[in-house]
Amino acid sequence: MGLVESGKVPKGITSLLNMSRKYSLWVYQWGLACCAIEMGAAFGSPRYDVMRLGVIPLPASPRQTDLVVVSGTVTDKMAPAVKRLYEQMPEPKYVISMGSCANCGGPYWDSYSVTKGVDQIIPVDVYVPGCPPRPEALLEGIVLLQERIQNEDMAARWKGEAIVVD
């Protein structure tokens, strides 16, 4: 623990740690709307199996996950719940925003009850566009996230300022 934070870990071990982290992501399915069905197809259907990437879609509790995929429209009524669930996740945590509703409000950009994008509430790592994005697009988003994790500097993440969301 102390080694990682102080940044004195040799590069080989850092990349080994990153590789092990990226291939063992546990995903919390924050399935809100139509994108949840495509996410379910990506996770549950044998055709677009996501487990081959090492991502396991099992947990039903946010306290055991590293990755949350926000799929579907976020409404103003739902927004506090999203924030609370994000705060319950342990560090290091990642967010994929799936679908145009979660990216920017989508087809409901002018509605009175829709939050225009989940990045107004929580920080997002990867945006997957589409309405709904094909399961392969979600898999590409996960692969991009894995690349990002591989190149991540763990010390900077631990030492730097915490991500403050207000």
Binding site: L32, Y108, S111, S113
Partner: peptide, 14 residues
């Protein structure tokens, strides 16, 4: 309910 209320009836008017 209302956690997925997107205001369809208002949106169809524009």
């Amino acid at each position: 309910m209302g956690y997925m209320h997107r205001g369809y009836e208002k949106l169809t008017e524009v």
